[in-house]
Amino acid sequence: MKIFGVRLPGMSSLILWGLLWELVGRTGFSFFLPPLSEVIATLYEIIGTAAFQKALFETAYAFLAGVFFAVVIGIPVGILMGKSRLIDELLLPWVNIFLSAPLTALVPVLMVLFGFGMKAIVITTTLFAIWIIILNARAGVQGINRSLVEMARSFGARPWDAFTKVYFWAALPEILGGVRIGVIRAVKGVIIGQLLISIVGFGALFELYSANFLMAHFWAVLIVLFALAFTLAEFLAWLERKVAYYAAAR
């Protein structure tokens, strides 16, 4: 961003918004919005507490497990769909339906099927993340240069080698793009799971703080959550840029 010819560091607009928040908060405009300084002070206060760390652990665990399954199942399924016409015709309608479906509405069904524990939360997280990962891996494989496929065949690649040494790497830029969006959706999934299925983790904290009108606490947890999600997405975007140099060259 440039103002009056002076180059400002990235995200300096955040400072502006932070200031605005502080000012509006100080006017006592609404109990809902305490000043930013108070939120940050609260953040320091609660970040070391056992309750916060337990919540962080529960959320991180459900999130990572959900993303893990989404990646480990989603990428191979997407690659298979990209390679096999039959599998593609069988699965594509379902993938498209679930990608655009309001998954939150499915959560009660998941509770019936998988109970009220961690399992249902992890599955919810996976369901939020997996479809876009599948679709992107599929698109990546379908975009592979035909000569690369023929090259692998002509030098006698067995299917497993072709899969791990050629298709996966050739599709990697798209795959990482899918994982990045999937991870962002998984954040939604895990919080919705923790609010609807069983009140644990950050979901429980949100519940607790908002029910007791502890708005500084509420915002503090929200800031932590946003910061974590943002950092993760930025890290994946950075990885994506690292492989982007060859996306054009395929």
Partner: peptide, 18 residues
């Protein structure tokens, strides 16, 4: 099918970019 007695040189090189 393809076999070790033949090797192919591709018009667009077909190199692994990574």
């Amino acid at each position: 099918g393809p076999g070790p007695d033949r090797a192919f040189v591709f018009q667009d090189f077909a190199l692994l970019p990574w």
